[in-house]
Design a protein around this nucleic acid. Structure first.
Length: 238
DNA sequence: GCGACAG
DNA sequence: ATCTTGTCGC
């Protein structure tokens, strides 16, 4: 039913990613990010798309804003949307970003004082084939600090599910423990984080925009009650 | 041909 | 992403 993705479209998407990649800020840009306890941080957001059974065209775009550090729901928005782009690993942003951006713009228009100071994104940021995953894409287009949190390892630049990787996971003893994901160039593209004491399977954290990796990892841990950071988890609970 | 494939 | 029950453990 679905035609194979046109070669020229993928190349167009790749050049779009390369263009926007230059706008990513990989450092802390906000005052609260330098504080040991994130003093000044009051609102954290999360975005996600939810699907139903065999329907991969209609989805529910969700945005929640939680208070920090209490993680209470301040705002919630759900909107049924019709997707146009297919899912292709490495190009997730072209499928999801337009609807996540719309949700953020609705919030900005209707309740600007509730805009989140940082957004958790379901997927990778710099930990990506071309160092420009969904979290970077949404960050650059929205201008908001974004953190990418993937639940599964994307095998990129030599990082894979090797025995070495498995033993590094086994060495994560407590919530907050992490190890770096190092690309072929030697650059640290992200970190595997044990997000809570109870979950042995890590999450994969990487920079989206306007935040450093260490801050992103520290903040992710601070927002986890369970394995998945609360702002993202709350999206699936309407 | 085989494996990999965020959501 | 989503389909799904019970089951084991604290």
């Amino acid at each position: 039913m679905s035609a194979p993705p046109a070669e020229d479209l993928l190349q167009q998407w790749e050049s779009e990613q390369a263009r926007l990649r230059q706008q990513v800020l990989e450092e802390d840009t906000e005052d609260w990010q330098g504080s040991p306890d994130f003093s000044g941080l009051e609102r954290v957001g999360g975005v996600d798309l939810s699907f139903i059974k065999g329907d991969d065209v209609n989805a529910c775009a969700q945005l929640v804003v939680l208070s920090y550090p209490d993680l209470q729901v301040l705002y919630e928005d759900s909107q049924m949307v019709t997707l146009t782009a297919p899912y292709i690993a490495g190009f997730l942003a072209f499928r999801e970003t337009p609807f996540l951006l719309e949700a953020l713009q609705r919030l900005k228009k209707n309740q600007p004082t509730l805009l989140p100071q940082v957004v958790f994104v379901d997927g990778n940021g710099l930990f990506h084939y071309r160092e420009f995953g969904l979290a970077c894409h949404l960050g650059v287009l929205s201008g908001l600090p974004c953190v990418g949190v993937a639940k599964n390892l994307l095998q990129v630049q030599g990082v894979n599910k090797s025995e070495e990787h498995q033993s590094q996971i086994a060495a994560l003893q407590r919530g907050g423990d992490s190890f770096p994901l190092i690309g072929a160039s030697g650059k640290v593209l992200g970190k595997a984080l044990r997000s809570s004491d109870k979950s042995s399977k890590p999450v994969y954290v990487s920079v989206g925009h306007k935040i450093s990796l260490d801050t992103a990892v520290r903040l992710t841990h601070a927002c986890c009650r369970y394995r998945v950071p609360e702002p993202i988890r709350q999206c699936d609970v309407f």
